[in-house]
């Protein structure tokens, strides 16, 4: 039995230890905001936080996260930071098909928490592990820039 915290709630799973965290959160806890793109850590659609660090849930064996705090896109949706990101992505036109967006928003939130005023190069580096096949990235970069401005002072807050 593996015990961990999922979006603030203590949970237990009897999934096999090599099962991917991605499959467990989607299939067992029905948190389907986290997407599978490549399944190899190259696209970032499955990005989540493990102990506040951005990671790819497709590469994480469930057995390794005993006691860890896992936060998915659903876990940040009530936060003020998410509201700012939500608004900024809409305003900048950063969402087209939307498949990459949960991962992209997690990467954006991770970046801004670490660096509330990123340069364009730092934004591009921050989302460098997230592929988007629709937007060409420019609108996403704009969205993050906008979120940094709109949410000034908000990002460093835990």
């Amino acid at each position: 039995m593996i015990t961990f915290t999922l979006n603030g709630r203590k949970v237990e799973t009897d999934a096999p230890p090599s099962a991917r965290l991605l499959d467990v959160i989607r299939d067992e806890y029905l948190l389907i905001g986290t997407k599978e793109g490549c399944g190899e850590g190259e696209c970032g659609a499955c990005s989540i936080f493990v102990n506040n660090l951005l990671q790819n849930s497709c590469l994480i064996p469930i057995g390794s996260i005993e006691g860890a705090e896992i936060v998915t896109i659903e876990g940040i949706m009530e936060s003020d930071q998410f509201k700012i990101l939500d608004e900024s992505y809409s305003e900048a036109g950063g969402v087209q098909c939307g498949y990459c967006i949960p991962g992209m928003v997690m990467a954006s939130a991770a970046l801004l928490a670490q660096n509330p005023h990123p340069s364009e190069a730092e934004i591009r580096e921050g989302i460098s592990g997230n592929l988007c096949r629709c937007t060409g990235y420019n609108m996403i970069v704009d969205a993050i820039n906008l979120a940094a401005k709109k949410g000034d002072g908000l990002w460093q807050k835990k």
Binding site: P17, S18, D27, E36, E40, G41, L59
Partner: peptide, 28 residues
């Protein structure tokens, strides 16, 4: 970290990677 092992033994979606030997986690 598992970032190589999990790709090496990857199965299809929903199916745990097929690691035949017992696993020892050390990253903690």
């Amino acid at each position: 970290g598992g970032t190589d092992v999990m790709v090496l033994y990857k199965s299809r979606r929903g199916v745990p990677p097929k690691i035949t030997k017992p696993i020892v986690f050390i990253d903690h």
